[in-house]
Amino acid sequence: MASSKRSWSLSTLPPELIEEILYRTPAKSLVRAKPTCKKWYALITNKRFIYNHLDRSPKRFMRTVDTIQILDPVTRTLSETPIPNAFQPPYKIDTMVHCDGLMLCMCGRWGSREEERYVHLAIWNPVLRQIRWIKPSKCFTTSDYYGIGYDSKKKSRDGGYKILRFSDRRDDHWYFDYCGEPQVEVYECKTRSWRTLDAKVDWHVDIACKGVAAMGNMYWLAQKEGRFILGFDFSVERFKNVCYCPRSAYDHYLACFEGDRLSLLQQDEESRVIVVWVTNKLTDVDVSFTKYFSVSRPDVPALPFCTEMAPLVYFIGKQKRITAWCERTEGERDTFRVLFTLYEIDESGLIEGSETGRDTETCSFRSFLCGYVYVPSLVPLP
């Protein structure tokens, strides 16, 4: 008797349903699925699909020291892959800035010799395993700050990515002697060329804040006459004072909120009280912070732990929940080890805290500034 079972495959589904399924598929899996058939390859490499998929992709945490570690905060799954050969010493990743799944990597560390003070710059997409080195107009140094974004006024951001370079270390005599007067420069990824901007740097960026990308622009915590949010608009290529931060002696941490706003997490080191502020939409004429919620429970952990730890990386969920990945130490001062912990905190206090790994070394300094909020994407290198 012939079987009554009907043969079925994903390819028999309507195209719009297939597309919806692929939107929910992790970027890494889609890379493996590209060779499946010509239709899938065309869809997965389509610009519209790539950016729609990016907008639906959930946040991850990334850490780079001995390996590339990516943590899913929902499933608590930690994946590890080797650091690409291009980022092995002497071009080891120091810090990164994230935008659309693209990592702008600053490689190289401070040293006593003159040649060790230079930095090498690269754009990297970990999912596509693509790396491109950026040539400087003159030199990159450890005195620089960097940003990556695009002209948000254009309908398509494809090919329109730009890189910002500036230094606020006006008292750095080494910089002046070897690189000349500090300049503000913009790199056009499309033409692969630098342009010098007529911009005056008269503020200091918080050294622990390497920048937050939102809606194509960059934002930093900075100080001049009080702490404020410094922005750089890639559409008009100008710095701007976005708004002042709420006055507080607490530690400050900046992050993106819901894609088009910023969040500011403050915590008192002694009482451990947490206050979370969020801005209105960054596209509004007047941007300001509003108190979102606060946490003052005895079970709340001290998120920074100490000044020698890597700065806190976190994001705020819609349910007024803090998801943070940070470090704590175990042992004595000279022999302590670094433990990595994922925390879930809301207004009621600590929901959960779980250890996700331990450093193999007994010193935390090499992991300084190594944590990032990251969204895996299929965006090709510009």
Rank of each mutant, 00 (worst) to 15 (best):
C245Q: 14
S156Y: 13
S4Y: 06
V313E: 07
G108E: 02
C256L: 11
T45P: 09
A208W: 09
L164H: 04
P182E: 04
L264E: 12
V276H: 04
V242R: 14
S57L: 04
N217Q: 05
S354H: 13
T335Q: 01
Y178A: 05
W133H: 07
T362F: 01
E327H: 01
F315M: 13
F176A: 13
D206R: 15
T290G: 05
L378P: 08
K291H: 10
K153Y: 02
K59C: 11
E327V: 02
I148Y: 04
V300T: 13
G357C: 15
V119Q: 14
F336G: 00
C105D: 03
M309I: 02
L303T: 05
I207P: 10
R238W: 03
T45E: 14
F315D: 07
T329M: 02
E258W: 12
H120N: 12
G111E: 11
Y219G: 01
D251L: 11
A2D: 12
T360K: 13
I322T: 10
A208D: 12
S4T: 13
L350P: 12
P136A: 11
Q69R: 12
L303A: 10
W194T: 01
V74R: 14
V236S: 15
K38T: 00
V242T: 09
K138S: 14
R321M: 13
L221S: 07
C306F: 02
N217Y: 09
E308T: 06
D268E: 10
R169G: 03
F239Y: 04
A33E: 04
L13S: 06
C99P: 03
K39H: 09
A122F: 12
S288E: 12
C209T: 01
V212W: 06
M1G: 08
S137V: 04
E80H: 14
S79P: 04
Y23R: 02
K138C: 12
H173A: 09
V184N: 10
T75A: 14
T283E: 09
R60G: 02
I148A: 09
H120K: 14
T25D: 00
Y146L: 05
V205R: 06
P182D: 01
A249W: 05
V212C: 04
K39S: 03
I229D: 02
L102A: 07
S57W: 01
K200R: 12
V300S: 08
I322P: 10
M106R: 15
Y150M: 06
L71I: 13
P380D: 07
T341C: 04
M106P: 03
R63V: 11
I229E: 01
S367H: 04
K162I: 04
E185G: 01
F257H: 07
T25K: 03
R358T: 05
C245D: 06
S364W: 01
Y244V: 10
P304L: 04
Y23L: 12
K318G: 07
E361P: 07
D72C: 15
V278Y: 05
R333S: 10
W174Q: 02
Q266R: 08
Y372E: 00
D94T: 14
V338P: 01
S3K: 09
V273A: 15
I123T: 03
F140A: 11
R48C: 05
S193K: 08
I21W: 00
E330W: 05
